[in-house]
Nucleic acid binder design. Structure first.
Lengths: 133, 133
DNA sequence: CGGAATCCTTGTAGATACTG
DNA sequence: CAGTATCTACAAGGATTCCG
């Protein structure tokens, strides 16, 4: 990778400094965001998350939670009861992230129709297999 | 399933009712956001993007741009000059999205250190091979 | 210059079964 | 209940090459 700015104003991020990418790497995961949303309402149990996210596998739930925990976005509290009980809760930074994500959601709602229409017309113009065999 | 994998989710993946997921499906792509950021400053050429995003392959740039174009987030303008010149520009909705993404960036910057420290301590506590010597 | 087609290596995720 | 472990797949993404 050429680190040199080849004349062009590389407005963009010098690799190391790009926080966007860092966030995205964290949000990119198919499930992270949905878990954050699901856990936004307060402490939630493993099984509740499993049902709440709906579609996630037990494995991915575990893995994603581990990553979120590692990044300090959720806390994991084990209650030493006889039937084990583990609760996950968002940390403060994660709650702030959640708020930010809400504006993303808002944007999505506002532009959902626009995007759908754009796709429709695009797909119409670029008919994939208009040439039948 | 289709015959071959042409890369990237070319086909809409059963977007559920959840707008969060719709957004994420669009943002999830490793590159979409970075391209939007890079193009936020005005019309930009293919090659400029290629250098600006830094790390992206030609293939992924093409594919991601196609998807963005399909969703009506960027416009593609071909100038019929002798050395071909194609410019990409964000549409209004994409510019709004960009603003939203800025708060994500902001969050990332504010919490970068926190996350890094969280990771460090997590990795420290969960030492992989703490086996007795 | 901008892009399409091809090939190949991974990461991400699903299903399943087993444990404390 | 709350995980782990393993095996497998498919699709994302990289590298390369060819073409208008």
């Amino acid at each position: 990778m050429s680190q040199r700015n080849t004349g062009v104003t590389s407005q963009v991020v010098n690799a190391e400094a790009c926080p966007v990418k860092e966030v995205l790497d964290r949000v990119t995961g198919k499930w992270s965001v949905q878990i954050i949303v699901a856990a936004a309402h307060g402490p939630i149990r493993f099984t509740e998350l499993e049902r709440g996210v709906e579609g996630i596998s037990r494995r991915m739930l575990t893995l994603t939670l581990r990553n979120l925990e590692r990044d300090g976005l959720v806390t994991r509290t084990v209650h030493p009861t006889v039937p084990p009980k583990v609760e996950y809760e968002l940390t403060e930074p994660a709650r702030e992230l959640h708020c930010t994500l809400l504006s993303l959601t808002e944007w999505a709602e506002r532009n959902r129709v626009y995007i759908a229409e754009s796709r429709a017309s695009y797909d119409d113009e670029h008919r994939p297999e208009l040439v039948d065999v």
